[in-house]
Design a protein around this nucleic acid. Structure first.
Length: 567
RNA sequence: UGUCCGAUGGUGUAACUGGCAACACGUCUGACUCUGGAUCAGAAGAGUCCAGGUUCGACCCCUGGUCGGACAACCA
C-alpha cells in the first residue's frame, strides 16, 4: 500500500504563484520563525466588488494554507469618505465569502494614538517637519516625475518648533489645510512619493469611530505600513499601484524603528464588460443607472450574491484566475463558467416558460390531470423526484415551435414529434393564427399515451425534448433577465469625448412574466433553480408569498442559439 | 524626456529554476443523452515582444531596444 503511493499518484499540486514562492522562501530562511500573518485592509468608503474578492481569497487563502492568520482591518483614516454602512457591508461580504477573521477585527483608527507617537519620534529624529504651505503650493513645489521638486521654506525648522507646532495642530489651533506634517526625505527623488510626503493633515471632521477626538488624521502612507507593523503582519499584500509606495513604506518603518512587514504587490482583477472602480460604481448607484450597490448587474459582492452567485463559485473563480503581476482582463465568461459549474451540481431542476404559446393536446381528456414524476437533478440522484401536473392545455416556449423549420431544428413543427420532458411524446397536427397579425395563437397536438416517461414506448427516439407547463397550474411570477451591464468589453477605455457611462447596455435588464410549474410555489429568497433548458435562476429578495420574483443568474450554454447567431 | 513594474495560444495562468511550451476557459469535431444542458473522446490554436550575446542547449541568464502599465490627491 505504502509504496503504491508513488510520486505520480499524489494529488496534482498546482504550481505556486509568485507570492507563495516568496512566502515559502521566507519560511525556508526562517524569517519570522516561519510565522505567516496577512491582512485584508479595505477602506470603508464603498461596497466590496469581485476584485476585492480576489484579494480576500488571496489573503485569507494564504493565511489558511500556511497555518497562519489573517486580520480584517479597516483602513479608516479619511473620515470624510468613510461610513459605518460600508463597514457593515464589508464584514457581511467577507463572511459570506466564507472567511473568518476570528477576534482580529481592527481599524487603523484604533492606532491613532500610537501613530501620533510615531510621528513624534520622527520629529525628534529630525525626519519630519511641519510645513505651513497650502495644498496648491505644495503641489506646485513637488515638481514632476521628470523634474525635481523644490524644498519647502519650512523644511529646516528646529525640532522644538516642529514639536510645538505639531502639538498645536493636534490641539485644534489651526484650521483645515493650514499646516501639514511632512516627512523630510528628498525633494529631488525620482520617486514622487519620496519628495517629503505628507504624513498628517488637519481635518476638523468627525470620524465614524473616534468621533471628534481628533482633528488631524494620518495619510495612507503613514497609517498603512505602521498598522501592518503593529499587527505584526508578515506579508502585506496589495495591488500594483502601491509598488511605488514601497520605498516610503520601508523608509517609515526603518526610521521609526519598528517591526518590518514585507509588502508584495500583485495585479488587480479586471473583468470584461464591467467597471471595477469604487468611484465609478458609486456613480452608477448615485445616478440610478442601477438600483443600488446590490443590483444584480453590479460586480459587487452584494450584487453577485443577489444575482445568485454562490461563495463557492467566486472562491473557485479566484483560484482559477491566478495571481501575477501583469495587467489582465478576465473574460466574464470565465465567471459564468464558475457559477454554471457549481449550480449544475446543486440546483433543483424545474420547468418554466418565459415566452409562452398555447398547446392543446386534442386527444387528452378535457378535465383530466395526470401527475408526472420528474427528476429533480440528474447530476444528483439524492435530490429525488417531484410531481408535475399535466393537462390538456399547456404552455411551451414560443421559440420551440417553427412553422417552416430548417433541417437542424429539433423542436416542434407541423407534423413533427417531440418529447415533452418527463411526460409524453406529442405530434403537432395544426396551428391557429391571429388573422390580423399572423401570430400563432394555438398549436394543436396529439399525444401518445404509451410514451409516458418510464413506459416502454417512451424509449422511442425523438430529436427534441421541450419543457412545458400545464396552463391552468402555472404559477405566474416576475422574472428578471439580466445581461451584461456594458455593451463593450472595456468601458474603462472610452473613445474621445465619451465616458464609461456611454457604453451602458440598454438591455441589461428585461422583465418578463414567467409561467412556472407549481412545485416552485413555496420557494424562498435565495433559493436557486435551474429552469430546464433556460438557465439558472434565484428567488430575489423582492419576492413575496404569492408574488415570486426570480433573477436569472446565467443562461445555460446553448449551442443551438450560438449556431444560429453565427449565421 | 525620470523612477518602478510588466510582456508566453483569443483570455488567464504554468513550465520541476537552463533541457525545444503545459493546464483551464473559449473555439471546433464526434459520441452519448428524456435539458441542443451535463458528461465523454478528440482537434485546431503560441514557438514565448524584437535584436544581439552567454551556453552543447534560453520562455528562463546578460546587453540594448520596442510596447504596455503605475507614479506629480492635505484619497486609499
Amino acid at each position: 500500500m505504502e509504496e503504491k503511493k508513488s510520486k505520480g499518484e499524489e494529488k496534482p499540486a498546482r504550481s505556486l504563484n509568485f507570492i507563495e514562492e516568496i512566502i515559502e522562501e521566507d519560511i525556508r530562511k526562517g524569517k519570522n520563525d516561519g510565522r505567516i500573518h496577512t491582512r485584508f485592509p479595505p477602506e470603508p468608503n464603498g461596497y466590496l466588488h469581485i476584485g476585492h474578492a480576489k484579494s480576500i481569497c488571496l489573503n485569507f487563502g494564504l493565511g489558511a494554507r500556511y497555518h497562519g492568520m489573517t486580520n480584517l482591518r479597516f483602513d479608516d483614516t479619511n473620515p470624510v469618505k468613510e461610513e459605518v454602512e460600508y463597514v457593515d457591508s464589508i464584514m457581511e461580504d467577507v463572511h459570506w465569502l466564507g472567511f473568518d477573521w476570528g477576534n482580529r477585527l481592527f481599524y487603523a483608527s484604533d492606532y491613532f494614538d500610537q501613530l501620533y507617537d510615531f510621528a513624534v519620534i520622527l520629529i525628534r529624529r529630525g525626519k519630519a517637519y511641519v510645513c505651513d504651505m497650502h495644498a496648491e503650493e505644495i503641489s506646485a513645489t513637488r515638481g514632476t516625475p521628470t523634474r525635481p521638486g523644490i524644498e519647502s521654506p519650512y523644511r529646516n525648522r528646529t525640532m522644538e518648533e516642529n514639536l510645538d507646532l505639531f502639538t498645536r495642530m493636534r490641539a485644534g489651533e489651526f484650521p483645515d489645510g493650514a499646516r501639514v506634517l511632512r516627512a523630510k526625505i528628498d525633494m529631488a527623488s525620482p520617486n514622487m512619493h519620496i519628495r517629503d510626503p505628507i504624513l498628517y493633515r488637519i481635518l476638523h471632521a468627525s470620524h465614524h469611530r473616534t468621533g471628534d477626538a481628533w482633528c488631524i488624521y494620518p495619510m495612507y502612507d503613514f497609517a498603512h505600513g505602521q498598522s501592518d507593523s503593529i499587527e505584526r503582519i508578515t506579508h502585506s499584500i496589495c495591488t500594483l499601484e502601491f509598488e511605488v509606495h514601497r520605498p516610503l513604506y520601508d523608509w517609515l518603518i526603518r526610521e521609526i524603528g519598528i517591526y518590518a512587514p514585507r509588502q508584495i504587490e500583485f495585479a488587480r482583477l479586471n473583468l470584461s464588460y464591467t467597471v471595477m472602480s469604487k468611484r465609478k460604481l458609486l456613480e452608477l448607484v448615485k445616478e440610478k443607472h442601477v438600483s443600488g450597490w446590490d443590483d444584480p448587474r453590479m460586480p459587487t459582492i452584494s450584487g453577485l450574491r443577489r444575482r445568485g452567485y454562490t461563495p463557492e463559485s467566486i472562491r473557485n473563480f479566484a483560484e482559477i484566475i491566478g495571481v501575477a503581476k501583469r495587467d489582465n482582463m478576465i473574460d466574464v465568461s470565465l465567471l459564468e463558467f464558475c457559477i454554471r459549474e457549481d449550480l449544475n451540481k446543486r440546483a433543483i431542476r424545474v420547468m418554466g416558460v418565459l415566452n409562452p404559446v398555447r398547446v392543446i393536446i386534442d386527444n387528452f381528456p378535457d378535465d383530466q390531470v395526470e401527475e408526472m414524476e420528474a427528476v429533480n437533478n440528474p447530476e444528483d440522484p439524492a435530490a429525488g423526484t417531484r410531481r408535475v401536473p399535466f393537462s390538456k392545455e399547456l404552455y411551451i416556449e414560443r421559440e420551440d415551435f417553427m412553422e417552416d423549420p430548417p433541417n437542424k431544428f429539433f423542436r416542434l413543427a407541423p407534423g413533427r414529434e417531440v418529447r415533452l420532458r418527463s411526460a409524453f411524446i406529442i405530434t403537432c397536427e395544426s396551428v391557429e393564427k391571429n388573422p390580423e397579425t399572423g401570430e400563432i395563437t394555438v398549436i394543436h397536438c396529439t399525444y401518445d399515451p404509451m410514451t409516458r416517461s418510464g413506459m416502454p414506448e417512451s424509449n422511442r427516439k425523438v430529436k427534441g425534448t421541450l419543457h412545458w407547463v400545464s396552463a391552468r397550474h402555472a404559477v405566474v411570477s416576475e422574472v428578471r433577465l439580466y445581461d451584461r451591464l456594458f455593451c463593450v468589453p472595456n468601458p474603462d477605455d472610452p473613445e474621445e469625448g465619451k465616458t464609461f457611462k456611454d457604453y451602458l447596455n440598454p438591455d441589461s435588464l428585461k422583465v418578463v412574466k414567467g409561467f412556472l410549474e407549481p412545485s416552485i410555489r413555496d420557494a424562498k429568497a435565495g433559493n436557486k433553480f435551474q429552469f430546464e433548458r433556460l438557465g439558472y435562476f434565484v428567488v430575489d429578495i423582492d419576492s413575496h408569498p404569492g408574488a415570486l420574483v426570480f433573477n436569472r443568474v446565467v443562461p445555460l450554454r446553448d449551442s443551438w442559439s450560438r449556431a444560429e447567431n453565427q449565421k
